[in-house]
């Protein structure tokens, strides 16, 4: 399949990029959240291209414009800011993250999660910003136009029905990126550039939990940088990923944990991916773990919480109950490894 036709723009600065987005956002409602996939038309941002281009081939996106942000220098680089936080430009590639000495030292769970994404060549292209904004995935959605036509399309794109939960009006496509659960555990914040200047919010507030309108990102905004707070630096962590192949695959389930531990757990976070329409922090896990010494039984208790948070459906290979069970096993193992 060839790509649909589009116009190509390649701004050199963030402000120029935002201006282009503003100019091409529907005049009626420029503040409306991006609800990808858009109807035909609109503007799509491309960074690494590893998510958008295969999707455009399948006609999941048929934008009027493609905005290439790779020439924007201010979106690159890893730097420590006064106060000790670490800022990652949205264009930082996953290879740069897995190789960065400072990330490996201070935020090892992020480096570990980055290392599991797809394959080394894809990580040379794929960016942290793109991984955060990765489109949700579903076997009924990530298919060619011809294929989707065969089953009357789906609610996420061109149709009005969810094959995964028939009868419902909600899209359950699974969020399938590896680094966001690690970032959630590290309590990362993000900076979004828009016409009114930058705004900053916890990463956890970016996601809506909807499979289709997955992010609170407006049509005229760009994810600019990720901020790793000083307070979670040096937390021990681990990421576990369920995949069929040892390379290339998206996660069928993933669990990240990060712990501040000095004999007893001071603080801890657990986040899961690949099983819900968003990456989610496991509620009450921090409360359960804090102040206790890590043990197999405590880990098992936390694993129960994680498994209950997981809502896998038939969006992906392997059956839902198995994937939920794996969230449990992986949570227990990740905790024991991070706390060991």
């Amino acid at each position: 399949m060839s790509l649909p036709e589009f116009k190509f723009v390649r701004p050199q600065s963030l402000s120029e990029a935002v201006a282009i987005l503003q100019q091409h956002s529907p005049a009626a409602d420029p503040l409306a959240p991006r609800r990808p996939p858009e109807e035909r038309g609109g503007i799509e941002i491309i960074a690494g291209g590893t998510d958008l281009i295969p999707s455009m081939r399948q006609r999941l996106f048929e934008p009027e414009f493609v905005l290439d942000i790779r020439a924007i220098r201010e979106l690159r680089g890893i730097r420590e800011v006064p106060g000790g936080d670490l800022e990652l430009g949205a264009l930082t590639t996953l290879t740069e993250i897995e190789r960065s000495a400072i990330i490996r030292q201070r935020y090892p769970v992020l480096a570990e999660a980055a290392r599991t994404v797809a394959s080394p060549v894809i990580r040379n292209m794929a960016t942290i910003g793109g991984n955060i904004c990765l489109d949700t995935r579903c076997v009924w959605y990530n298919q060619s136009l011809q294929w989707r036509k065969s089953c009357g399309f789906c609610i996420k794109k061109d149709g009005d029905l969810c094959h995964v939960a028939p009868g419902g009006q909600k899209c359950w496509a699974a969020f399938s990126a590896d680094t966001p659960p690690a970032l959630l555990c590290l309590e990362a914040e993000i900076e979004i550039a828009g016409p009114a200047g930058p705004r900053r919010l916890p990463l956890s507030e970016l996601y809506t939990g909807e499979g289709d309108a997955r992010m609170n990102l407006r049509r005229n905004e760009i994810l600019a940088r990720i901020i790793l707070p000083r307070r979670t630096a040096n937390w021990r962590g681990a990421y576990r990923k369920l995949r069929i192949r040892g390379s290339i695959d998206y996660p069928l389930a993933g669990v990240a944990v990060a712990i501040e531990n000095n004999g007893h757990i001071q603080q801890a976070n657990i986040a899961i991916t690949g099983v819900n329409p968003a990456p989610v922090l496991v509620k009450r896990a921090g409360g359960l773990l804090a102040g206790k010494a890590l043990s197999e039984s405590l880990a098992a208790e936390a694993a129960d919480l994680a498994a209950r948070t997981a809502k896998p459906l038939t969006t992906s290979a392997l059956t839902p109950e198995y994937r939920r069970e794996i969230v449990r096993v992986f949570t227990r193992r990740a905790l024991m490894e991070a706390g060991g």
């Binding site: 291209g49 590893t50 281009i53 295969p54 081939r57 394959s119 060549v121 894809i122 040379n124």
Partner: peptide, 27 residues
């Protein structure tokens, strides 16, 4: 493959291996 998974189109861009099937020529 057409889903940017197989690597048969790999080329070096600035010395780094990347997928030419997921790269726009304009870029």
């Amino acid at each position: 493959c057409e889903d940017s998974s197989c690597g048969a189109c790999t080329v070096l861009i600035g010395g780094t291996p990347m997928l030419s099937c997921a790269t726009l020529a304009m870029s």
